[in-house]
Simulated assay, not measured.
Amino acid sequence: MTVSDIMRHEVVTASPETPVHEVATTMRDENVGSVVVVEGDEPVGLITDRDIAIRIAADQLDAEEMDAERMMSTDPVTVEADTGLFELSTQLCNEGVRRMPVVDEDGDLAGIVTLDDLAVLLTGELGNLAGVIDAESPPY
């Protein structure tokens, strides 16, 4: 199984010039916790709901005066769609991130994968394993 099997193909994106208040509104309306900032089809940054809360509220900045480029984490850690899930989990851990834009062989945005996506898959798989164990175990 690879990243392409669990990634979300529809990604909420913004351009570097998008005002942060529009990014936050989009996050709310789309019910997502992050927006990938793209130039053309290439991911160049990532903005999370936490970034907005911490940087805007804590520093008392004006969201209407900030654009995505000033808010985003630059050089986002990406993963290729054909990466295996074990490698994905290792990369998430090593990089200390919860979300990764998925890129194709040209480096263009193909989707996004999150720690939550991986956790849902693994929880389902663990449930299947528990069912096997339960079926093979004697009654108590």
Results as ranks from 00 to 15, higher is better:
Glu105Asp: 15
Val11Tyr: 07
Glu105Thr: 12
Leu92Asp: 06
Gly131Asp: 15
Met72Phe: 07
Asp75Arg: 06
Leu129Lys: 10
Val132Ala: 13
Ala110Met: 09
Ser15Trp: 06
Leu85Tyr: 02
Pro16Ala: 04
Glu22Ile: 06
Arg50Tyr: 08
Glu30Ser: 10
Arg98Tyr: 09
Glu10Asn: 14
Ala110Arg: 08
Met71His: 04
Arg98Lys: 15
Thr18Cys: 12
Ala81Val: 06
Thr13His: 06
Glu17Gly: 13
Ala130Leu: 13
Met71Trp: 00
Val79Leu: 05
Glu80Thr: 14
Phe86Ala: 11
Met7Leu: 03
Ser137Gln: 15
Ala63Cys: 07
Glu125Ile: 12
Asp116Ala: 15
His21Gly: 02
Ala63Met: 11
Ala110Asn: 07
Met1His: 11
Val3Gly: 08
Pro138Tyr: 14
Thr123Gly: 14
Asn128Lys: 15
Asp67Ser: 00
Pro76Leu: 05
Arg55Val: 02
Ala58His: 00
Asp116Leu: 14
Ala53Glu: 00
Leu109Pro: 10
Asp29Ile: 04
Ala110Ile: 03
Asp5Ser: 14
Val38Ala: 03
Asp75Met: 08
Phe86Met: 12
Glu87Val: 07
Ile52His: 07
Val36Trp: 01
Arg70Thr: 11
Asp106Met: 02
Leu121Gln: 09
Val37Ile: 15
Asp29Glu: 15
Glu64Gln: 08
Met27Thr: 08
Leu88Ile: 02
Asp59Ile: 05
Ile133Tyr: 05
Pro139Val: 13
Glu30Gly: 07
Asp134Tyr: 08
Val97Gln: 05
Pro139Trp: 07
Leu129Asn: 02
Thr123Val: 11
Asp108Leu: 09
